[in-house]
């Protein structure tokens, strides 16, 4: 496999974590424009863990996931009582606050004669774990996709379990779910925490892949893309966000001849798709029909 193909597949894998975190919230009835913030928390956490503190990779990744979950819960506690667009706007505002916090974060230490660490808007260079360990791009690609497969496996199990049914019931009608004895608030807090951890996992892997991160990586554009992956692919199954991510990256890569205009064309295609398939390509109706066959 050539370097370009490895890079594209790695990118699809990385954004899939973000897409799945947005999907988890969407099926529980919440629309978040702020998942990029937790992706950023994961990226900074993982970078600080390995490049500055010298932690082993699994410890740094787990710590960054924990940080992502805590950050998501801190955002959710005051905002989850909001509904619909108000919650979406609150998550966007929180994400922008976090991005600005990254711009204000200056913490560098001396590592091997180099100043390593977040340097505000100048970014965080030297997250070189995969290069220091001699990890080949194909090996890192396999790491990303094995982790993604594990996460997807967890989603598939969850969707077939009572928890999955409870989650979708809550997403479709929280009042009805509450009347059936479901603790909606506790369930949603759990979902928010899990989605934050999932986004942070993607962010941690992104930091290792990129070796350099900066606050602008985690602005609104990434949040919009993460939502569009789930909405394009469909909300009927966990495979929907993966399809959305593959289509997004695939269409963008295959329309390079359009140069800078390809983002405009892509935006138009998304708009048209959502008019005809508002719940995405693999929506609940299609998945239910498939399961009944």
């Amino acid at each position: 496999m050539d370097e370009y193909a490895v890079g594209v597949l790695t990118n699809i894998g990385l954004v899939s974590f973000l897409a799945l975190s947005a999907y988890l919230l969407l099926i529980s009835g919440e629309l978040s424009f702020g998942q990029q913030a937790f992706f950023g928390v994961g990226a900074y956490g993982a970078g600080i863990g390995t490049a500055m503190l010298g932690w082993p990779l699994p410890v740094a990744v787990l710590a960054s996931m924990l940080l992502g979950a805590i950050a998501a819960l801190l955002v959710a506690l005051p905002t989850l009582r909001l509904r619909g667009l108000y919650f979406a706007m609150a998550t966007l505002a929180a994400a922008e606050m976090m991005r600005i916090a990254f711009e204000l974060l200056h913490w560098q230490i001396d590592v091997g004669g180099e100043r390593i660490g977040p340097d505000g808007a100048q970014g965080f260079r030297g997250i070189r774990w995969i290069f220091e360990r001699g990890v080949e791009p194909e090996t890192f690609l396999a790491m990303v996709w094995i982790l993604l497969a594990a996460v997807v496996g967890g989603f598939l199990w969850m969707e077939r379990s009572r928890l999955g049914t409870t989650l979708r019931a809550t997403g479709q009608d929280p009042e009805l779910a509450r009347s059936l004895g479901i603790n909606v608030e506790r369930l949603k807090l759990g979902v928010v925490g899990a989605s934050g951890a999932l986004a942070a996992l993607g962010g941690a892997l992104f930091a290792y892949h990129n070796s350099y991160i900066e606050p602008r990586n985690f602005d609104m554009m990434l949040g919009v893309h993460s939502l569009s992956y789930a909405l394009i692919g469909g909300l009927g199954t966990v495979l929907g966000p993966l399809l959305g991510a593959a289509l997004d990256i695939g269409v963008l890569e295959s329309s390079r001849f359009l140069q800078g205009y390809r983002m405009i064309v892509f935006g138009g295609l998304v708009a048209v798709l959502l008019i005809y398939r508002p719940r995405g390509l693999l929506d609940e109706r299609l998945v239910d029909a498939w399961r009944r066959r």
């Binding site: 370009y4 990129n210 900066e214 602005d219 554009m221 990434l222 893309h225 997004d248 963008l252 983002m263």
Partner: peptide, 10 residues
């Protein structure tokens, strides 16, 4: 930087 993984050059 503002469109990581989405807008890049080959």
């Amino acid at each position: 930087p503002s469109m990581p993984m989405a807008h890049n050059i080959k």
